[in-house]
Design a protein around this nucleic acid. Sequence first.
DNA 1: TCTTTTTTGTACCATTTCGCATTAAATCCC
DNA 2: GGGATTTAATGCGAAATGGTACAAAAAAGA
Lengths: 219, 219
Amino acid sequence: MVQKRKGTVAKAKPEVPAEPKRRGRPRAYEPDVALGQVLAVFRRDGYAATSLDDLSAVTGMNRPSLYGAFGDKRALYIKSYQRYREDYTAPMVDIFKADIDIRERLRRFFEVALDIYLSGEQPRGCFTVMTVASDAIADPEIRALVHQGFADVDDAFGWCFRTAVKRGELPAATDIAVLSQMASATLYSLAVRARAGVPRTELQAIANGAVSILCRAVA
Amino acid sequence: MVQKRKGTVAKAKPEVPAEPKRRGRPRAYEPDVALGQVLAVFRRDGYAATSLDDLSAVTGMNRPSLYGAFGDKRALYIKSYQRYREDYTAPMVDIFKADIDIRERLRRFFEVALDIYLSGEQPRGCFTVMTVASDAIADPEIRALVHQGFADVDDAFGWCFRTAVKRGELPAATDIAVLSQMASATLYSLAVRARAGVPRTELQAIANGAVSILCRAVA
DNA sequence: TCTTTTTTGTACCATTTCGCATTAAATCCC
DNA sequence: GGGATTTAATGCGAAATGGTACAAAAAAGA
Protein backbone atom coordinates (compact mmCIF):
# COMPACT_ATOMS: atom_id res chain seq x y z
CA MET A 1 0.00 0.00 0.00
CA VAL A 2 1.55 3.25 -1.13
CA GLN A 3 -0.91 6.00 -0.14
CA LYS A 4 0.65 9.42 -0.53
CA ARG A 5 -0.70 12.16 1.77
CA LYS A 6 -4.34 12.08 2.80
CA GLY A 7 -6.21 15.21 1.88
CA THR A 8 -4.37 17.37 4.40
CA VAL A 9 -2.50 20.09 2.51
CA ALA A 10 -3.64 19.15 -0.93
CA LYS A 11 -3.94 22.61 -2.40
CA ALA A 12 -0.42 23.85 -1.94
CA LYS A 13 1.45 20.90 -3.37
CA PRO A 14 0.48 19.45 -6.76
CA GLU A 15 3.27 16.81 -6.57
CA VAL A 16 2.56 14.98 -9.77
CA PRO A 17 1.40 17.33 -12.59
CA ALA A 18 -2.12 15.97 -12.77
CA GLU A 19 -3.90 14.03 -10.08
CA PRO A 20 -7.56 15.01 -10.64
CA LYS A 21 -8.92 13.14 -7.64
CA ARG A 22 -10.15 10.03 -9.40
CA ARG A 23 -13.62 8.81 -8.73
CA GLY A 24 -13.82 5.06 -8.08
CA ARG A 25 -11.69 2.50 -6.36
CA PRO A 26 -8.06 3.58 -6.28
CA ARG A 27 -5.47 1.66 -8.25
CA ALA A 28 -3.41 -0.78 -6.27
CA TYR A 29 -0.41 -0.22 -8.51
CA GLU A 30 1.64 2.59 -9.97
CA PRO A 31 1.36 2.44 -13.76
CA ASP A 32 4.92 3.68 -14.23
CA VAL A 33 6.31 1.13 -11.84
CA ALA A 34 4.30 -1.67 -13.41
CA LEU A 35 5.45 -0.74 -16.90
CA GLY A 36 9.03 -0.76 -15.69
CA GLN A 37 8.56 -4.27 -14.36
CA VAL A 38 6.93 -5.35 -17.60
CA LEU A 39 9.86 -3.92 -19.52
CA ALA A 40 12.28 -5.88 -17.38
CA VAL A 41 10.59 -9.16 -18.22
CA PHE A 42 10.36 -8.38 -21.93
CA ARG A 43 14.03 -7.51 -21.91
CA ARG A 44 14.87 -10.77 -20.23
CA ASP A 45 12.74 -13.20 -22.22
CA GLY A 46 11.79 -11.43 -25.43
CA TYR A 47 8.35 -10.93 -26.89
CA ALA A 48 7.21 -14.44 -27.70
CA ALA A 49 8.56 -16.13 -24.59
CA THR A 50 6.82 -13.69 -22.29
CA SER A 51 3.29 -14.59 -21.25
CA LEU A 52 0.68 -12.35 -19.73
CA ASP A 53 0.89 -14.52 -16.66
CA ASP A 54 4.57 -13.66 -16.35
CA LEU A 55 3.72 -9.99 -16.55
CA SER A 56 0.85 -10.44 -14.13
CA ALA A 57 3.20 -12.12 -11.67
CA VAL A 58 5.95 -9.52 -11.88
CA THR A 59 3.61 -6.55 -11.57
CA GLY A 60 1.32 -8.09 -8.98
CA MET A 61 -1.58 -7.04 -11.19
CA ASN A 62 -3.96 -9.71 -12.32
CA ARG A 63 -4.50 -10.14 -16.00
CA PRO A 64 -7.72 -8.16 -16.37
CA SER A 65 -6.14 -5.18 -14.62
CA LEU A 66 -3.11 -5.45 -16.85
CA TYR A 67 -5.35 -5.60 -19.82
CA GLY A 68 -7.41 -2.66 -18.71
CA ALA A 69 -4.40 -0.53 -17.92
CA PHE A 70 -2.22 -1.15 -20.95
CA GLY A 71 -4.16 -3.23 -23.49
CA ASP A 72 -3.10 -6.55 -24.94
CA LYS A 73 0.34 -8.05 -25.13
CA ARG A 74 1.29 -6.19 -28.27
CA ALA A 75 0.28 -2.82 -26.78
CA LEU A 76 2.23 -3.67 -23.66
CA TYR A 77 5.28 -4.42 -25.73
CA ILE A 78 5.05 -1.19 -27.66
CA LYS A 79 4.61 0.82 -24.46
CA SER A 80 7.58 -1.02 -22.98
CA TYR A 81 9.67 -0.16 -25.99
CA GLN A 82 8.76 3.51 -25.72
CA ARG A 83 9.51 3.43 -22.04
CA TYR A 84 12.90 1.87 -22.78
CA ARG A 85 13.74 4.62 -25.19
CA GLU A 86 12.64 7.31 -22.75
CA ASP A 87 14.58 5.80 -19.88
CA TYR A 88 17.84 5.94 -21.72
CA THR A 89 17.69 9.20 -23.61
CA ALA A 90 18.38 11.27 -20.49
CA PRO A 91 21.87 9.88 -19.77
CA MET A 92 22.69 10.19 -23.45
CA VAL A 93 21.65 13.83 -23.52
CA ASP A 94 24.10 14.52 -20.69
CA ILE A 95 26.88 13.29 -22.92
CA PHE A 96 25.83 15.69 -25.64
CA LYS A 97 25.83 18.64 -23.31
CA ALA A 98 29.30 17.95 -21.97
CA ASP A 99 32.19 20.01 -23.33
CA ILE A 100 34.48 17.12 -24.22
CA ASP A 101 36.37 15.90 -27.25
CA ILE A 102 35.16 13.19 -29.59
CA ARG A 103 37.17 10.39 -28.00
CA GLU A 104 35.85 11.11 -24.54
CA ARG A 105 32.35 11.58 -25.89
CA LEU A 106 32.36 8.21 -27.63
CA ARG A 107 33.93 6.58 -24.63
CA ARG A 108 31.13 7.84 -22.39
CA PHE A 109 28.55 6.89 -24.97
CA PHE A 110 29.69 3.28 -25.02
CA GLU A 111 30.05 3.26 -21.27
CA VAL A 112 26.40 4.25 -20.79
CA ALA A 113 25.40 1.71 -23.39
CA LEU A 114 27.18 -1.01 -21.46
CA ASP A 115 25.41 0.06 -18.30
CA ILE A 116 22.14 -0.47 -20.12
CA TYR A 117 23.09 -3.72 -21.79
CA LEU A 118 24.54 -5.24 -18.65
CA SER A 119 21.81 -4.09 -16.28
CA GLY A 120 20.18 -6.70 -14.10
CA GLU A 121 21.74 -9.84 -12.76
CA GLN A 122 21.72 -11.38 -16.22
CA PRO A 123 22.89 -9.15 -19.07
CA ARG A 124 19.91 -7.96 -21.07
CA GLY A 125 21.33 -6.47 -24.25
CA CYS A 126 19.46 -3.95 -26.35
CA PHE A 127 15.69 -3.91 -26.64
CA THR A 128 15.89 -2.80 -30.25
CA VAL A 129 18.08 -5.73 -31.22
CA MET A 130 15.83 -8.12 -29.33
CA THR A 131 12.82 -6.74 -31.11
CA VAL A 132 14.42 -7.06 -34.52
CA ALA A 133 15.47 -10.61 -33.80
CA SER A 134 11.96 -11.63 -32.75
CA ASP A 135 8.84 -12.28 -34.74
CA ALA A 136 7.58 -8.91 -33.53
CA ILE A 137 9.56 -7.33 -36.36
CA ALA A 138 6.83 -8.55 -38.72
CA ASP A 139 4.54 -5.93 -37.19
CA PRO A 140 4.66 -2.71 -39.23
CA GLU A 141 4.16 -0.40 -36.27
CA ILE A 142 6.90 -2.09 -34.28
CA ARG A 143 9.15 -2.08 -37.32
CA ALA A 144 8.61 1.66 -37.63
CA LEU A 145 9.70 2.12 -34.01
CA VAL A 146 12.83 0.12 -34.71
CA HIS A 147 13.66 2.18 -37.77
CA GLN A 148 13.24 5.30 -35.71
CA GLY A 149 15.61 3.78 -33.18
CA PHE A 150 18.22 3.15 -35.86
CA ALA A 151 17.91 6.68 -37.15
CA ASP A 152 18.13 8.23 -33.69
CA VAL A 153 21.32 6.37 -32.86
CA ASP A 154 22.89 7.17 -36.23
CA ASP A 155 21.92 10.80 -35.79
CA ALA A 156 23.32 10.92 -32.29
CA PHE A 157 26.68 9.67 -33.48
CA GLY A 158 26.41 11.95 -36.48
CA TRP A 159 26.09 14.91 -34.17
CA CYS A 160 29.16 13.76 -32.26
CA PHE A 161 31.35 13.50 -35.35
CA ARG A 162 30.02 16.70 -36.86
CA THR A 163 30.81 18.54 -33.66
CA ALA A 164 34.26 16.99 -33.61
CA VAL A 165 34.92 18.28 -37.11
CA LYS A 166 33.75 21.74 -36.09
CA ARG A 167 36.04 21.64 -33.10
CA GLY A 168 38.92 20.69 -35.33
CA GLU A 169 39.37 17.26 -33.76
CA LEU A 170 38.72 15.51 -37.04
CA PRO A 171 39.58 16.61 -40.58
CA ALA A 172 36.94 18.42 -42.59
CA ALA A 173 36.88 15.62 -45.15
CA THR A 174 35.63 13.15 -42.56
CA ASP A 175 32.84 10.94 -43.85
CA ILE A 176 30.43 11.50 -41.02
CA ALA A 177 27.74 9.12 -42.25
CA VAL A 178 30.15 6.21 -42.50
CA LEU A 179 31.71 6.82 -39.11
CA SER A 180 28.27 7.13 -37.54
CA GLN A 181 27.15 3.82 -38.95
CA MET A 182 30.36 2.20 -37.77
CA ALA A 183 29.78 3.58 -34.31
CA SER A 184 26.22 2.27 -34.40
CA ALA A 185 27.54 -1.08 -35.52
CA THR A 186 29.87 -1.11 -32.53
CA LEU A 187 26.87 -0.45 -30.33
CA TYR A 188 24.88 -3.37 -31.72
CA SER A 189 27.90 -5.58 -31.48
CA LEU A 190 28.30 -4.66 -27.82
CA ALA A 191 24.63 -5.35 -27.25
CA VAL A 192 24.82 -8.78 -28.83
CA ARG A 193 28.00 -9.82 -27.10
CA ALA A 194 26.84 -8.42 -23.78
CA ARG A 195 23.67 -10.46 -23.83
CA ALA A 196 25.65 -13.54 -24.74
CA GLY A 197 27.60 -13.13 -21.52
CA VAL A 198 30.85 -11.58 -22.69
CA PRO A 199 32.39 -9.89 -19.62
CA ARG A 200 32.42 -6.14 -19.32
CA THR A 201 36.18 -5.75 -19.48
CA GLU A 202 36.21 -7.46 -22.84
CA LEU A 203 33.38 -5.28 -24.07
CA GLN A 204 35.20 -2.17 -22.90
CA ALA A 205 38.25 -3.28 -24.84
CA ILE A 206 36.11 -3.56 -27.97
CA ALA A 207 34.66 -0.12 -27.34
CA ASN A 208 38.10 1.39 -26.79
CA GLY A 209 39.39 -0.21 -29.95
CA ALA A 210 36.45 1.16 -31.88
CA VAL A 211 37.08 4.65 -30.56
CA SER A 212 40.72 4.51 -31.63
CA ILE A 213 39.80 3.37 -35.13
CA LEU A 214 36.95 5.82 -35.56
CA CYS A 215 38.97 8.80 -34.35
CA ARG A 216 42.35 8.14 -35.88
CA ALA A 217 43.62 10.70 -38.34
CA VAL A 218 43.44 9.80 -42.00
CA ALA A 219 46.60 9.53 -44.05
CA MET B 1 8.33 -40.58 -52.58
CA VAL B 2 11.98 -40.31 -53.39
CA GLN B 3 13.27 -43.89 -53.81
CA LYS B 4 16.79 -43.97 -55.20
CA ARG B 5 17.83 -47.09 -57.19
CA LYS B 6 16.36 -50.46 -56.28
CA GLY B 7 18.90 -53.16 -55.58
CA THR B 8 20.11 -53.40 -59.20
CA VAL B 9 23.81 -52.54 -59.29
CA ALA B 10 24.21 -51.81 -55.65
CA LYS B 11 27.76 -53.02 -55.23
CA ALA B 12 29.51 -50.75 -57.70
CA LYS B 13 28.05 -47.40 -56.63
CA PRO B 14 27.85 -46.47 -52.97
CA GLU B 15 26.27 -43.07 -53.80
CA VAL B 16 25.70 -41.91 -50.26
CA PRO B 17 28.49 -43.09 -47.91
CA ALA B 18 26.29 -45.35 -45.84
CA GLU B 19 22.89 -46.71 -46.73
CA PRO B 20 22.89 -50.07 -44.96
CA LYS B 21 19.52 -51.21 -46.30
CA ARG B 22 17.43 -50.25 -43.33
CA ARG B 23 15.12 -52.79 -41.87
CA GLY B 24 11.67 -51.43 -41.13
CA ARG B 25 9.28 -49.07 -42.82
CA PRO B 26 11.16 -46.53 -44.91
CA ARG B 27 11.16 -42.90 -43.92
CA ALA B 28 8.76 -40.68 -45.79
CA TYR B 29 11.12 -37.71 -45.50
CA GLU B 30 14.73 -36.79 -46.06
CA PRO B 31 16.25 -35.78 -42.71
CA ASP B 32 18.51 -33.19 -44.34
CA VAL B 33 15.64 -31.63 -46.22
CA ALA B 34 13.44 -31.59 -43.15
CA LEU B 35 16.12 -29.97 -41.04
CA GLY B 36 16.54 -27.32 -43.67
CA GLN B 37 12.84 -26.57 -43.51
CA VAL B 38 12.96 -26.48 -39.74
CA LEU B 39 15.86 -24.05 -39.91
CA ALA B 40 13.90 -21.79 -42.21
CA VAL B 41 11.03 -21.51 -39.75
CA PHE B 42 13.32 -20.94 -36.77
CA ARG B 43 15.07 -18.21 -38.73
CA ARG B 44 11.77 -16.57 -39.53
CA ASP B 45 10.05 -16.70 -36.15
CA GLY B 46 12.74 -17.34 -33.57
CA TYR B 47 12.87 -20.02 -30.92
CA ALA B 48 9.94 -19.20 -28.69
CA ALA B 49 7.50 -18.21 -31.41
CA THR B 50 8.01 -21.44 -33.30
CA SER B 51 5.73 -24.28 -32.28
CA LEU B 52 6.21 -27.95 -32.98
CA ASP B 53 3.03 -27.74 -35.02
CA ASP B 54 4.70 -25.14 -37.23
CA LEU B 55 7.65 -27.44 -37.74
CA SER B 56 5.36 -30.38 -38.32
CA ALA B 57 3.50 -28.42 -40.95
CA VAL B 58 6.56 -27.21 -42.83
CA THR B 59 8.27 -30.58 -42.91
CA GLY B 60 5.17 -32.61 -43.56
CA MET B 61 6.26 -34.84 -40.69
CA ASN B 62 3.87 -35.34 -37.83
CA ARG B 63 5.04 -34.47 -34.36
CA PRO B 64 6.00 -37.95 -33.18
CA SER B 65 8.15 -38.46 -36.28
CA LEU B 66 9.77 -35.12 -35.72
CA TYR B 67 10.41 -36.04 -32.16
CA GLY B 68 11.81 -39.44 -33.06
CA ALA B 69 14.09 -38.05 -35.73
CA PHE B 70 15.56 -35.03 -34.01
CA GLY B 71 14.45 -35.00 -30.38
CA ASP B 72 12.58 -32.25 -28.61
CA LYS B 73 12.30 -28.62 -29.57
CA ARG B 74 15.55 -27.64 -27.97
CA ALA B 75 17.46 -30.40 -29.75
CA LEU B 76 15.84 -29.35 -32.99
CA TYR B 77 16.98 -25.82 -32.45
CA ILE B 78 20.54 -26.83 -31.70
CA LYS B 79 20.66 -29.05 -34.77
CA SER B 80 19.24 -26.21 -36.84
CA TYR B 81 21.91 -23.90 -35.55
CA GLN B 82 24.65 -26.35 -36.45
CA ARG B 83 23.11 -26.80 -39.84
CA TYR B 84 23.07 -23.05 -40.33
CA ARG B 85 26.74 -22.80 -39.51
CA GLU B 86 27.59 -25.67 -41.86
CA ASP B 87 25.54 -24.25 -44.69
CA TYR B 88 27.40 -21.00 -44.71
CA THR B 89 30.98 -21.98 -44.03
CA ALA B 90 31.50 -23.26 -47.57
CA PRO B 91 30.97 -19.94 -49.38
CA MET B 92 33.14 -18.25 -46.77
CA VAL B 93 35.97 -20.71 -47.33
CA ASP B 94 35.93 -19.82 -51.02
CA ILE B 95 36.68 -16.24 -50.07
CA PHE B 96 39.65 -17.35 -48.02
CA LYS B 97 41.09 -19.36 -50.86
CA ALA B 98 40.85 -16.55 -53.40
CA ASP B 99 44.02 -14.62 -54.20
CA ILE B 100 42.63 -11.12 -53.66
CA ASP B 101 43.50 -8.07 -51.61
CA ILE B 102 41.95 -7.18 -48.28
CA ARG B 103 39.42 -4.74 -49.70
CA GLU B 104 38.07 -7.23 -52.18
CA ARG B 105 38.11 -9.98 -49.60
CA LEU B 106 36.07 -7.96 -47.13
CA ARG B 107 33.76 -6.83 -49.88
CA ARG B 108 33.00 -10.42 -50.83
CA PHE B 109 32.67 -11.39 -47.20
CA PHE B 110 29.97 -8.83 -46.59
CA GLU B 111 28.33 -9.67 -49.88
CA VAL B 112 27.93 -13.31 -48.92
CA ALA B 113 26.69 -12.25 -45.51
CA LEU B 114 24.01 -10.11 -47.11
CA ASP B 115 22.97 -13.06 -49.26
CA ILE B 116 22.44 -15.02 -46.08
CA TYR B 117 20.74 -12.27 -44.14
CA LEU B 118 18.41 -11.34 -46.97
CA SER B 119 17.54 -14.88 -48.04
CA GLY B 120 13.88 -15.76 -48.31
CA GLU B 121 11.06 -13.47 -49.22
CA GLN B 122 11.34 -11.75 -45.88
CA PRO B 123 14.84 -10.87 -44.69
CA ARG B 124 15.92 -13.29 -41.99
CA GLY B 125 19.03 -11.79 -40.46
CA CYS B 126 21.59 -13.84 -38.60
CA PHE B 127 20.73 -16.96 -36.64
CA THR B 128 23.37 -16.19 -34.05
CA VAL B 129 21.95 -12.75 -33.36
CA MET B 130 18.44 -14.17 -33.18
CA THR B 131 19.59 -16.80 -30.73
CA VAL B 132 21.33 -14.26 -28.53
CA ALA B 133 18.28 -12.03 -28.52
CA SER B 134 15.96 -14.84 -27.49
CA ASP B 135 15.46 -16.60 -24.20
CA ALA B 136 17.41 -19.51 -25.66
CA ILE B 137 20.59 -17.68 -24.67
CA ALA B 138 19.89 -18.72 -21.08
CA ASP B 139 20.76 -22.27 -22.09
CA PRO B 140 24.46 -22.97 -21.41
CA GLU B 141 24.92 -25.32 -24.35
CA ILE B 142 23.35 -22.87 -26.77
CA ARG B 143 25.36 -20.05 -25.28
CA ALA B 144 28.51 -22.06 -25.90
CA LEU B 145 27.55 -22.44 -29.55
CA VAL B 146 27.05 -18.70 -29.80
CA HIS B 147 30.41 -17.97 -28.27
CA GLN B 148 31.99 -20.35 -30.73
CA GLY B 149 30.21 -18.46 -33.47
CA PHE B 150 31.63 -15.15 -32.25
CA ALA B 151 35.11 -16.58 -32.09
CA ASP B 152 34.90 -18.12 -35.53
CA VAL B 153 33.84 -14.87 -37.14
CA ASP B 154 36.47 -12.87 -35.28
CA ASP B 155 39.08 -15.42 -36.30
CA ALA B 156 37.99 -15.36 -39.92
CA PHE B 157 38.39 -11.60 -40.08
CA GLY B 158 41.62 -11.91 -38.14
CA TRP B 159 42.99 -14.20 -40.81
CA CYS B 160 41.99 -11.70 -43.47
CA PHE B 161 43.78 -8.80 -41.81
CA ARG B 162 46.82 -10.87 -40.92
CA THR B 163 47.12 -11.98 -44.50
CA ALA B 164 46.74 -8.39 -45.66
CA VAL B 165 49.64 -7.35 -43.42
CA LYS B 166 51.76 -10.18 -44.79
CA ARG B 167 50.94 -9.10 -48.30
CA GLY B 168 51.97 -5.57 -47.50
CA GLU B 169 48.48 -4.14 -47.97
CA LEU B 170 48.33 -2.93 -44.41
CA PRO B 171 51.13 -1.63 -42.16
CA ALA B 172 52.84 -4.06 -39.82
CA ALA B 173 51.63 -2.09 -36.80
CA THR B 174 48.00 -2.83 -37.65
CA ASP B 175 45.94 -3.84 -34.62
CA ILE B 176 44.44 -6.98 -36.07
CA ALA B 177 42.25 -7.81 -33.08
CA VAL B 178 40.56 -4.42 -33.10
CA LEU B 179 39.98 -4.41 -36.83
CA SER B 180 38.54 -7.92 -36.65
CA GLN B 181 36.09 -6.97 -33.96
CA MET B 182 35.07 -3.91 -35.93
CA ALA B 183 34.48 -6.05 -38.98
CA SER B 184 32.43 -8.46 -36.86
CA ALA B 185 30.47 -5.52 -35.52
CA THR B 186 29.73 -4.46 -39.07
CA LEU B 187 28.45 -7.94 -39.73
CA TYR B 188 26.07 -7.90 -36.77
CA SER B 189 24.92 -4.45 -37.71
CA LEU B 190 24.14 -5.63 -41.22
CA ALA B 191 22.28 -8.60 -39.80
CA VAL B 192 20.15 -6.45 -37.53
CA ARG B 193 19.35 -3.83 -40.13
CA ALA B 194 18.70 -6.43 -42.79
CA ARG B 195 16.13 -8.20 -40.67
CA ALA B 196 14.50 -4.88 -39.88
CA GLY B 197 13.90 -4.38 -43.58
CA VAL B 198 16.64 -1.97 -44.58
CA PRO B 199 17.09 -2.35 -48.35
CA ARG B 200 20.13 -4.09 -49.76
CA THR B 201 21.58 -1.04 -51.47
CA GLU B 202 21.69 0.77 -48.17
CA LEU B 203 23.30 -2.22 -46.49
CA GLN B 204 25.89 -2.40 -49.24
CA ALA B 205 26.70 1.24 -48.68
CA ILE B 206 27.30 0.52 -45.02
CA ALA B 207 29.51 -2.42 -45.92
CA ASN B 208 31.50 -0.34 -48.40
CA GLY B 209 31.94 2.42 -45.86
CA ALA B 210 33.17 -0.09 -43.32
CA VAL B 211 35.69 -1.49 -45.78
CA SER B 212 37.07 1.96 -46.48
CA ILE B 213 37.46 2.73 -42.79
CA LEU B 214 38.94 -0.64 -41.89
CA CYS B 215 41.46 -0.59 -44.73
CA ARG B 216 42.54 3.03 -44.80
CA ALA B 217 46.20 3.68 -44.10
CA VAL B 218 47.09 5.10 -40.71
CA ALA B 219 48.68 8.53 -40.42
C1' DT C 1 3.75 -66.62 -45.21
C1' DC C 2 5.02 -65.08 -40.85
C1' DT C 3 7.90 -62.56 -37.75
C1' DT C 4 10.68 -58.60 -36.75
C1' DT C 5 11.76 -53.96 -37.23
C1' DT C 6 11.07 -49.25 -38.09
C1' DT C 7 8.22 -45.52 -39.16
C1' DT C 8 3.70 -43.35 -39.69
C1' DG C 9 -0.64 -41.49 -38.18
C1' DT C 10 -4.24 -40.82 -34.87
C1' DA C 11 -5.53 -39.75 -30.59
C1' DC C 12 -4.87 -38.28 -26.14
C1' DC C 13 -3.22 -35.74 -21.86
C1' DA C 14 -1.75 -32.09 -18.92
C1' DT C 15 -0.52 -27.54 -19.06
C1' DT C 16 -0.31 -22.99 -20.69
C1' DT C 17 -2.15 -19.12 -22.92
C1' DC C 18 -5.13 -15.30 -24.15
C1' DG C 19 -9.11 -13.07 -23.56
C1' DC C 20 -13.38 -11.83 -21.32
C1' DA C 21 -17.54 -12.02 -18.29
C1' DT C 22 -18.94 -11.44 -13.83
C1' DT C 23 -18.75 -10.40 -9.13
C1' DA C 24 -16.68 -8.11 -5.15
C1' DA C 25 -14.34 -4.13 -3.23
C1' DA C 26 -13.10 0.66 -2.48
C1' DT C 27 -13.61 5.33 -3.19
C1' DC C 28 -16.19 9.84 -4.50
C1' DC C 29 -20.39 12.67 -4.92
C1' DC C 30 -24.84 13.79 -3.33
C1' DG D 1 -25.94 6.79 4.41
C1' DG D 2 -26.95 5.65 -0.65
C1' DG D 3 -25.92 5.56 -5.41
C1' DA D 4 -22.35 6.12 -8.95
C1' DT D 5 -17.94 4.94 -10.56
C1' DT D 6 -13.73 2.80 -11.04
C1' DT D 7 -10.80 -0.91 -10.04
C1' DA D 8 -9.64 -5.65 -8.14
C1' DA D 9 -10.30 -10.47 -8.11
C1' DT D 10 -12.16 -14.80 -9.40
C1' DG D 11 -12.97 -17.82 -12.72
C1' DC D 12 -14.63 -19.53 -17.16
C1' DG D 13 -13.77 -21.14 -21.90
C1' DA D 14 -11.72 -21.97 -26.16
C1' DA D 15 -7.53 -22.65 -28.36
C1' DA D 16 -2.71 -23.79 -28.55
C1' DT D 17 1.28 -26.19 -26.88
C1' DG D 18 4.76 -29.85 -25.79
C1' DG D 19 4.98 -34.38 -25.30
C1' DT D 20 3.59 -39.32 -25.54
C1' DA D 21 0.92 -43.84 -26.05
C1' DC D 22 -0.69 -46.94 -29.19
C1' DA D 23 -2.18 -49.10 -33.21
C1' DA D 24 -1.66 -49.40 -38.28
C1' DA D 25 1.52 -49.58 -42.20
C1' DA D 26 5.54 -50.80 -44.84
C1' DA D 27 9.62 -52.78 -45.46
C1' DA D 28 13.45 -56.75 -44.62
C1' DG D 29 14.59 -61.39 -43.19
C1' DA D 30 13.59 -66.19 -42.23
